[in-house]
């Protein structure tokens, strides 16, 4: 009987404590960001849009060996056209990555024996056309030079 009569008081105390805890948050700074205007900084590990690495002479490191195709979990995502140059070495004449099929697992970057492919920090990939998500060799080269510019700008700051 005694317990029953005490119950309303305990409930009131519990509710008051709960409200007090919620009320404490009024004075705290917000943890959210207004997204399109402000963006969170990304670290170097981030897995975004792909890029093909170009060396100082403007040549691709890629030798069209096809390891990236073999480790990719979705089929027909990476397509490579292989060709031989004058010195007898293979190079990719065309290299396409279909982002419609890509799951951004990063296997192609991890298992590339030459370190010829990287992932940039670009993640806003929405477009009006599906075909815009099919990256050909020129876009991939451009992605790399863009990512280098971004990196140097960032380090200057």
């Amino acid at each position: 009987m005694m317990k029953k009569s005490l119950k309303p008081f305990r409930d009131i105390i519990a509710l008051a404590l709960g409200h007090l805890t919620v009320f404490k948050h009024v004075f705290k700074r917000p943890v959210t960001l207004e997204y399109p205007e402000k963006k969170l900084p990304l670290n170097d590990n981030f897995r975004g849009e792909h890029a093909l690495v170009v060396d100082n002479e403007g040549k691709l490191l890629c030798t069209a060996c096809g390891t990236c195709q073999r480790v990719c979990p979705s089929f027909e995502t990476i397509e490579i056209e292989k060709e031989k140059n004058e010195s007898g070495k293979f190079y990719p004449k065309n290299y396409t990555i279909d982002l419609n099929k890509c799951i951004f697992c990063g296997n192609c970057v991890q298992y590339c024996p030459f370190g010829a492919i990287i992932m940039t920090k670009e993640y806003e990939l929405a477009d009006e056309k599906k075909s815009a998500l099919k990256l050909d060799i020129n876009t991939l080269k451009k992605n790399y030079s863009d990512s280098i510019i971004k990196k140097t700008v960032k380090s200057k700051r």
Binding site: L40, N45, F46, R47, I103, C105, G106, M119
Partner: peptide, 19 residues
């Protein structure tokens, strides 16, 4: 949870699909 996810993002590269 956001704190944990950003720690994961720093470590693995993505927030939910770590691989």
């Amino acid at each position: 949870r956001e704190v944990i996810l950003s720690l994961f993002e720093e470590l693995t590269g993505q927030r939910l699909m770590y691989n």
